[in-house]
């Protein structure tokens, strides 16, 4: 029997539009370039994102990434209830699933073979002064949990992602990353 390789890290990020799904994916992708890893990202587009849900799939590997299609991610970062319901069955067993505890009733998760990591990112972000950095808090936790990337590379990724018109947001996002990174 031929088995599917799990060497690649295939990350699902999902939530409402405006929660920073694409931005979190961008930071990850930039961090990969910094670390010399290969990356392939695919975000939802067109009519798929009208009505509010957004999704990004990011493959990270030391080897060249062949398939752009990820049916079953092995890491997830989920930021709203509809995405939790929609995608929870697609995630591979034993994968870490970082989620916003205030928005997702994770106790009702139909699966017991996932490594759920609930983070109260909304309230932490509000305490930090900007609810919009919840995505980067979760990303910090995801990096710590999985060890897929060196945290210094992610910091460099943040610099790249928050440039030009977004420069003023860099500092708080850097703090958000540190906070999330040190939560577990």
């Amino acid at each position: 029997m031929i088995t599917v390789s799990t060497e690649e890290r295939n990350i699902l990020i999902a939530g409402f539009g405006g929660q920073g799904v694409i931005m979190a994916g961008n930071v990850l992708a930039y961090a990969c370039i910094e670390s010399g890893k290969n990356v392939l990202a695919m975000a939802s587009y067109g009519a798929e994102v009208r009505g509010g849900t957004a999704k990004a799939l990011i493959s990270i590997s030391n080897e060249p990434i062949d398939s752009p299609i990820i049916a079953n991610p092995n890491t997830a970062m989920i930021m709203n209830r509809p995405s939790f319901i929609k995608y929870i069955e697609t995630i591979k067993p034993h994968s870490p699933v970082i989620l916003i505890s205030s928005m997702i009733d994770y106790h009702t998760c139909p699966r017991s073979d996932l490594d759920l990591v609930p983070i109260d990112a909304t309230n932490i972000a509000i305490r930090m002064g900007n609810i919009l950095v919840a995505n980067i808090i979760l990303l910090g936790t995801l990096i710590r949990k999985t060890g897929i990337l060196n945290s210094d590379d992610v910091r460099k990724g943040l610099v790249r992602a928050f440039y030009k018109g977004k420069k003023h947001l860099y500092y708080i996002n850097e703090q958000a990353f540190e906070t999330g990174y040190n939560l577990i």
């Binding site: 992708a29 290969n38 990356v39 392939l40 695919m42 975000a43 990434i65 752009p68 299609i69």
Partner: peptide
């Protein structure tokens, strides 16, 4: 649609 939409370095 895949090649057009995907992001790579």
């Amino acid at each position: 649609g895949i090649i057009g939409q995907m992001v790579e370095a």
